[in-house]
Deep mutational scan, measured.
Amino acid sequence: MQIFVKTLTGKTITSEVEPSDTIENVKAKIQDKEGIPPDQQRLIFAGKQLEDGRTLSDYNIQKESTLHLVLR
């Protein structure tokens, strides 16, 4: 499924993921596309910071959901 990751600069990254993918996994995909190390990434969805060990389905993230990427 496709999800969108919006950066603070307003850029939107499209990523191909599975509901069973972990947040860590998603951060790795963002690193592949943007070159941002996962340890600098914080992903936010519905006002919550997403934890690395959890999966997209844990957070009820569905296709075409938009996550927000904040850098630390």
Rank of each mutant, 00 (worst) to 15 (best):
Q41K: 03
L56C: 01
V70G: 05
A28P: 01
T12H: 05
T7H: 07
P19K: 07
E64R: 08
M1W: 09
N60F: 07
A46M: 14
I61W: 01
N60D: 10
K11T: 08
P19Y: 07
A46R: 14
D21I: 04
T9P: 05
D21N: 06
S15W: 14
Q31N: 10
T22P: 04
G35T: 03
D52Y: 04
Q2S: 10
V17Q: 05
Y59E: 02
R42E: 13
G10E: 03
L43V: 03
D58E: 10
G35N: 07
Q31D: 05
P19C: 06
E51A: 08
V5M: 04
L50H: 01
I30G: 02
E24R: 14
E24Q: 12
T22E: 02
Q2Y: 13
P37Y: 05
S57G: 10
L71E: 08
L50R: 00
E64W: 13
S65V: 07
L67T: 00
T7L: 15
A46E: 14
T7K: 04
N25D: 12
D39Y: 13
D52T: 05
V70M: 11
Y59T: 02
S20P: 03
E51L: 09
Q2M: 13
G47C: 07
E24Y: 15
K11H: 11
E16R: 09
N60K: 09
Q40N: 09
T7N: 06
Y59V: 02
K48F: 10
V17L: 05
E51P: 02
A46P: 01
T9Y: 14
S15H: 13
N60L: 06
S65I: 04
H68G: 04
D52R: 04
V17F: 12
D21A: 07
K27A: 03
P19R: 07
T12R: 07
S57A: 14
A46Q: 15
V5E: 02
S65N: 09
F45H: 07
V26N: 00
V70Y: 12
S15A: 15
G10V: 02
D58F: 13
E51F: 07
D52V: 04
K29P: 00
S57H: 10
Y59G: 00
I23P: 02
F4N: 06
D58W: 12
G53W: 13
I36H: 08
R54N: 10
E34Y: 14
E64P: 04
M1P: 03
L67A: 01
D39L: 09
S65C: 04
F45Y: 11
P37T: 06
K6F: 06
T7Y: 14
T66D: 03
T22L: 11
R72T: 13
N60S: 09
D39C: 12
E16P: 05
Q49G: 07
D32K: 13
V26Q: 01
Q49L: 15
T55R: 10
N25T: 14
L71P: 09
E18M: 13
V17E: 00
R54M: 12
E64V: 03
T9L: 11
E64M: 10
M1N: 04
S65D: 14
K11N: 07
Q31W: 15
S20D: 11
D52N: 11
D52K: 04
E64A: 09
I36V: 08
K48W: 06
T12M: 12
L56D: 00
T66W: 07
G35E: 04
L56K: 00
E16Q: 12
R42S: 11
V5G: 01
